[in-house]
Simulated assay, not measured.
Amino acid sequence: MSVKAKKHLGQHFLKDENIAKKIADTLSLKGYDDVLEIGPGMGVLTKYLLEKSITTHVIEIDTESVEYLKTNYLNLAPRIYEQDFLNYDLNTVFRGKSFAIIGNFPYNISSQIVFKTLEMRDQIPEFSGMFQKEVAQRICSKEGNKVYGILSVLTQAFYNADYLFTVPPSVFNPPPKVDSGVLLLTRKDNYTLPCDEKLFFRVVKTSFQQRRKTLRNSLKTFNLSDNLKANAIFGQRPEQLSVSQFIELTTLIEKDEN
C-alpha cells in the first residue's frame, strides 16, 4: 500500500532516503526530549527520527497517511495525531514541555507553521524543516535584501535562522514546480524582547505592508508626534532595518505613546 499525494493538502512526498536522513540529522536533540513531525506522509523522515534517542510524535491531517503509518510503524501508533497542526492545541500532548518541530512542510501552510511556532517559542527551542526555497530564503535573509520581510524579522527576533541546503524537485513524488530549501531555527538564549512584544509585531507588520514607503509614511496609523517623526530612523524603508533596529523603533514608539 502507498498513499496518493493530494493536491489540496499540498502534498509532495520525499522519496530520497539520503535527504530524509540529512534532515533528521539537522536537530541537535539538546534541551528537549520530544520531537513533533508535521505532515509525515508515509514516514520517510519519521523512520530516521525513530532511530534517535528522543520520543517522536507525528501530526497528520490526511486519513490515508495516518492509516499507512499505523500499519507500518506500530510502535509509533499511540503518538500519531490525526489533526490539523494549525488548529490543534499542542499542549494536550506536550503539557508545557519543550519539544522540537521538524517536517517536510506543505508549501501552502508553511508560513503559518512558522507563525504558530513563534507563538509557542517558550516550548520550541529548535525547529528544522523543508520549505519552498524562496520562503526558506526569506526567513533566513538579512536586512537590505529584497526578500527580507515580516517573516524574516519576526523569526529572527527570537531564533537564529540558518539556510542549510537546497533540494531539487526530482526527489519528490509528485515533483513540485520549484526547488525546496531546508532551514534550521535555533532559539536564542535570550528570546524575550526589551520592548512591548505585541507592539513589536504590530510595528513590523504595519511597516512591511507598504514596504516601498519610508517608515514615516508607512507608520502613519500610529499617530506619532512630529518630534519622533523627525528621528532619522523614520526616513528609512523597512527592509533597511535590522531586527535590533526594529526593537529600537518599537521602544521609541512605546515611549512616544506614553
Rank of each mutant, 00 (worst) to 15 (best):
R216A: 09
Y32V: 09
K133L: 06
T46C: 03
F222V: 15
L151I: 08
Y148I: 03
F158A: 01
K133H: 10
H57I: 01
T166Y: 11
A136Y: 04
L241N: 06
F201L: 13
T192L: 14
R216V: 12
F127P: 13
P125T: 00
S65W: 05
L50P: 10
S170M: 11
I23P: 13
A5R: 04
V147W: 11
Q210K: 14
A230V: 10
L183W: 07
I253L: 09
M1D: 15
G181P: 10
K97A: 06
K7L: 04
I124Y: 05
V35I: 13
I54N: 05
L224Q: 04
P78A: 07
I113Y: 02
D196Q: 04
P40I: 00
L49W: 05
F13W: 07
L118H: 08
K198G: 10
K70P: 07
K205V: 02
I54D: 03
P40F: 05
K229W: 05
F222C: 12
L49K: 07
N72H: 10
V171A: 04
H12M: 09
Q236G: 07
Q83H: 01
A20M: 12
D122G: 07
P106Q: 05
V35D: 13
Q210M: 14
K146Q: 08
F13L: 10
I80N: 04
R212Q: 06
K70T: 03
D162H: 14
L76I: 14
G43D: 13
S110G: 11
C140K: 03
T26W: 09
Q156H: 07
S170G: 11
P238F: 12
P40H: 01
K142T: 09
I150T: 11
L9P: 00
S98C: 03
S128H: 12
N108Q: 13
T186G: 02
F172K: 02
K116E: 05
K97F: 04
P175Y: 03
L69N: 03
V171Y: 11
L45I: 13
C140S: 08
D84S: 05
F200T: 09
Y32M: 08
L183M: 12
G103Y: 01
